[in-house]
Amino acid sequence: MIMLSISPIPAFSDNYIWCVARDGEAIIVDPGDAAPVLKYLEQHQLKLSAILVTHHHYDHVNGIELLREHYPQASVYGPHNQVGSISQRLEHGQTISLFDHSVEIIAVPGHTLDHIAYYISDNSPNPLLFCGDTLFAGGCGRLFEGTAEQMLASLRLISALPANTAVYCAHEYTLSNLKFAQAVEPKNEALQQRVQQAKQRRAEGLPTVPSQLALELLTNPFLRTGKSTLQASVAAQTGLKHWKEKDIFASLRKWKDDF
């Protein structure tokens, strides 16, 4: 099977619209703005064949209609929500085929209630996860619609994927996320090393994503709420006396919101 070529298309101040290409065709993930996508497709002589939507926020969907005007044959996949331009509505556990690759749909509510992720496990050498605003490099999305318990369950689903999964999130938030992670786990050596690597990449004008799930499990506090050292740190910061993991997660998310 031919490997997919994946490139970020920067948009707004910190969004990444992902272009997945093969044999002159492209799949675009979360096009919040059509203009940079149209420019990229023209520059690289690509034809748009499909659009993948993770959730309904404007910075992920506002470019769809203009892209469809230029490429009316492109299919638009997405969750059940109020975005009318989605042509194929997807459910958790459903599988679709794109470029002869099997794409599994994973429901990941929390940031929004409709949020889904796209998981491709048959791409060598790494599985691929397009997770929108659910899991970020070093962080996770704010809880705009869902609950802390829902987001924790969603992140557990992601954490159970193979450790070598490449994680394609939709924003360049890494340095600010890692600054918070350092406040939570100041003695995490893997985190300190990651901070230096991320700073170097940004200094060179390079994206810090995709990341790898194995690295997230070592350094992302929102995937580490079951760790006793992290729990002690959160409890000390927030005054928790007795807790379950969902309480740690909720307190951690609020700490980050106020950070």
Score class of each variant (00 low, 15 high):
E189F: 05
P207D: 10
E189Y: 07
N188M: 01
V209D: 01
T208D: 08
N188V: 02
T219K: 13
A190C: 07
A198N: 05
N188C: 04
V195G: 07
L191P: 02
L206R: 01
L206W: 03
Q192S: 08
L217G: 09
E204Q: 10
P221V: 14
P210G: 08
E216C: 07
T219Q: 04
G205M: 14
R202G: 02
V195D: 04
Q192G: 02
V209A: 08
E216W: 13
A181W: 14
L206T: 02
P210N: 10
P186C: 04
S211F: 10
E185V: 00
R201W: 02
Q197L: 14
A190R: 05
E185D: 03
P186G: 01
L217R: 15
A203E: 05
E185S: 14
Q212S: 15
K187M: 08
A190G: 10
L218R: 15
P210H: 09
T219V: 12
L206N: 03
R194G: 03
A203S: 06
L191N: 03
P221M: 04
S211K: 14
K199A: 12
P186M: 00
Q193I: 05
Q212E: 10
R201G: 02
V184F: 12
G205C: 05
T219A: 14
A183M: 04
G205P: 13
A203L: 15
Q212K: 13
Q197T: 08
A198Y: 00
A198F: 04
L218Y: 06
L218F: 10
P221A: 12
A198G: 08
